[in-house]
Amino acid sequence: MSLNETVETDLNVHHFEFTATDGLNLRGEIFGERLSKNLPVFCLPGLTRNAKDFHPLAERLARDPDNPRLVLILNSRGRGTSDYDSNSANYDILTEANDALHALAAAGLEEAIFIGTSRGGLLTMAIAALRPGVIAGAVLNDIGPVINAQGLARIKTYLSKAKPVTSWDDAITYIKEANFGMFPALSEEQWQAFAHMTFKEENGKPVRDFDIAIAKAIDAVDLSQPLPDAWPQFLAMSHAPVLVLRGEKSDILARETAKAMTKRHPDCKLIEIEGQGHAPMFLVDSLNEQIAQELAKMDKKHAQRLARAEPESDHS
Rank of each mutant, 00 (worst) to 15 (best):
residue 1 M to N: 04
residue 14 H to R: 14
residue 25 N to H: 15
residue 28 G to C: 10
residue 34 R to H: 14
residue 37 K to W: 00
residue 44 L to V: 09
residue 46 G to D: 06
residue 54 F to T: 11
residue 57 L to G: 06
residue 63 R to V: 02
residue 66 D to W: 08
residue 81 T to H: 11
residue 83 D to H: 07
residue 88 S to R: 10
residue 88 S to C: 12
residue 91 Y to F: 06
residue 92 D to P: 05
residue 95 T to F: 01
residue 97 A to R: 03
residue 101 L to G: 01
residue 104 L to T: 01
residue 114 F to Q: 04
residue 116 G to D: 06
residue 116 G to E: 05
residue 123 L to M: 07
residue 125 M to N: 11
residue 130 L to P: 03
residue 136 A to P: 02
residue 136 A to R: 01
residue 140 L to V: 08
residue 140 L to F: 13
residue 147 I to G: 00
residue 148 N to A: 13
residue 149 A to F: 03
residue 149 A to V: 13
residue 151 G to A: 03
residue 180 F to M: 05
residue 181 G to C: 02
residue 184 P to F: 15
residue 184 P to I: 15
residue 188 E to A: 15
residue 189 E to P: 01
residue 190 Q to N: 09
residue 196 H to V: 08
residue 197 M to L: 03
residue 203 N to F: 04
residue 209 D to V: 02
residue 213 A to V: 02
residue 214 I to K: 08
residue 214 I to S: 01
residue 227 L to G: 05
residue 248 E to G: 00
residue 249 K to Q: 12
residue 252 I to M: 09
residue 258 A to P: 01
residue 259 K to T: 14
residue 262 T to D: 15
residue 264 R to K: 15
residue 265 H to G: 07
residue 266 P to T: 09
residue 266 P to G: 12
residue 266 P to S: 10
residue 273 I to C: 06
residue 275 G to K: 09
residue 275 G to W: 02
residue 279 A to Q: 07
residue 282 F to L: 14
residue 286 S to L: 05
residue 289 E to L: 14
residue 300 K to I: 14
residue 311 P to I: 14
residue 313 S to Q: 15
residue 314 D to Q: 13
